[in-house]
Amino acid sequence: MRGLWLIDGSYVYKAGKSFQADNPTYEKRGIDYKKLKDCICKEFEIDNLDSWYFNSTPDPATDAQNAYHRWLKTTEPKGPNIRVKLYDLKEKKIRCRNCGTEFSIKVQKGVDVGIATTALRLFQRYDVIVLSAGDGDFEDFIRYIVEDHDKKLYIVGFDNSISPDLQQFSSANYLLNEHYNEICDTRDSKPFDSADEVVGD
Score class of each variant (00 low, 15 high):
174 Y>N: 00
170 S>V: 08
124 Q>L: 15
33 Y>F: 15
63 D>W: 07
119 A>S: 10
91 E>F: 04
101 T>C: 01
1 M>L: 03
188 D>E: 15
162 I>Q: 06
10 S>C: 05
113 V>W: 08
144 Y>F: 13
16 G>S: 15
70 R>P: 00
194 S>K: 09
119 A>M: 15
178 E>T: 10
103 F>C: 04
71 W>V: 10
180 Y>F: 15
67 A>C: 08
55 N>L: 12
30 G>E: 07
94 I>N: 07
97 R>S: 14
37 K>H: 10
171 S>Y: 09
122 L>N: 14
24 P>G: 09
10 S>T: 08
179 H>N: 14
144 Y>W: 04
118 T>N: 12
151 K>C: 02
107 V>C: 11
179 H>A: 05
97 R>H: 11
100 G>M: 02
50 D>E: 13
87 Y>E: 11
58 P>H: 02
196 D>N: 14
59 D>W: 06
161 S>K: 08
44 F>T: 14
179 H>Y: 01
124 Q>F: 07
181 N>V: 02
104 S>G: 04
43 E>V: 02
93 K>M: 12
24 P>K: 11
79 G>A: 04
110 G>D: 10
131 L>H: 02
85 K>A: 09
107 V>W: 03
149 H>D: 00
36 L>A: 04
120 L>G: 04
150 D>C: 05
165 D>H: 10
69 H>G: 00
180 Y>M: 05
129 I>L: 13
55 N>T: 13
51 S>V: 09
127 D>N: 13
25 T>Y: 05
12 V>K: 05
16 G>Q: 12
23 N>L: 00
110 G>S: 09
1 M>I: 01
185 D>A: 05
